[in-house]
């Protein structure tokens, strides 16, 4: 403070299109996340433990071409899933909760920005950050294996790389809604982060307790659901006892209702409920 008062001057610039403004939200999320030391530490550790060793191992191992089995087993690894859940918990924890806590959501919603654009902007920002772990490294691993293959069928290998890219994208698509749901349920980012991790953990524990009674209970585990969908994407056979309809239902339950709830919460916040 303490500056000499100046006169108010109008601004005569050209406004950007309404639909493009959601990217400003996404861009900010990506910038903010990569300023976060804990997230960067998790990223580096995950890169080493989850992606770097398979990259070296698969690339050095004599191989004729990249196979769907190789990439499927790499992505179905428990450590990949654990790091994905940790990442989603951290990345999504403050997406909505922080705006609710500080009431800055009111500033967003009073702008020429539809609630769905706000939500889409947040979702896209989280997707970009998470895909940097779930999509880019597996594709790089796939390309490295393809580049070092001894066989001539590069096209088939590239096909598997494409399936890997879809799987990586799907991983983020599958996990982000629950992270956003937790972030919209509370105005404390810590609760949201821990809540997301505990949700996946508890669902896995319940699933393992109930699975002996019926294999269908296994689908309560998000990890099993995700692994089964990898099998579908890589064109492999699902385990014999998998109920496909139930699998589809679980995919739907874990993705659509959470996002719907987040949207509803934003709409309600907009009108002050």
């Amino acid at each position: 403070m303490g500056l000499d008062p100046i006169g108010y001057r109008p601004w005569n610039g050209k406004r950007t299109q309404h639909e493009r403004r959601l990217f400003i939200i996404s861009e900010r999320i990506v910038r903010e996340k990569f300023k976060s030391t804990p997230l960067l530490a998790l990223f580096v550790m995950g890169m080493l433990l989850v992606h770097f060793f398979p990259l070296v191992m698969y690339a050095m191992w004599p191989h004729a071409q990249l196979t769907a089995e190789n990439m499927s087993s790499y992505m179905q690894g428990g450590i990949f899933f654990i790091f994905n859940v940790l990442l989603v918990s951290i990345v999504c924890s403050d997406l909505i909760s922080e705006d609710m806590r500080s009431s800055s959501i009111v500033l967003y919603l009073s702008r020429a920005l539809r609630p769905e654009h706000y939500l889409l902007g947040k979702w896209l920002g989280a997707m970009v950050v998470i895909c940097l772990f779930t999509l880019v490294p597996p594709v790089a691993v796939g390309l490295a294996i393809t580049a070092t293959q001894s066989g001539p069928d590069y096209l088939a290998s590239l096909g598997v790389v494409g399936q890997t890219a879809i799987s990586g994208l799907w991983t983020a698509l599958f996990l982000v809604p629950v992270g956003m749901l937790m972030s919209a349920l509370t105005s404390k980012r810590t609760y949201a982060g821990v809540g997301t991790f505990m949700f996946f953990f508890i669902m896995t524990v319940i699933s393992s307790i109930l699975q002996p009674f019926s294999p269908d209970w296994g689908l309560l585990s998000p990890q099993i659901v995700l692994n089964d969908t990898y099998a579908v994407i890589f064109g492999m056979h699902l385990p014999a006892n998998t109920n496909f309809a139930l699998l589809a239902l679980m995919v739907l339950v874990l993705t659509v209702p959470p996002m719907w709830y987040v949207y509803d919460r934003i709409m309600r916040k907009g009108v002050g409920k």
Partner: peptide
């Protein structure tokens, strides 16, 4: 600046 951009400024 952020909210300016959300209001359509480059």
């Amino acid at each position: 600046a952020y909210f300016g951009r959300l209001s359509g400024m480059s």
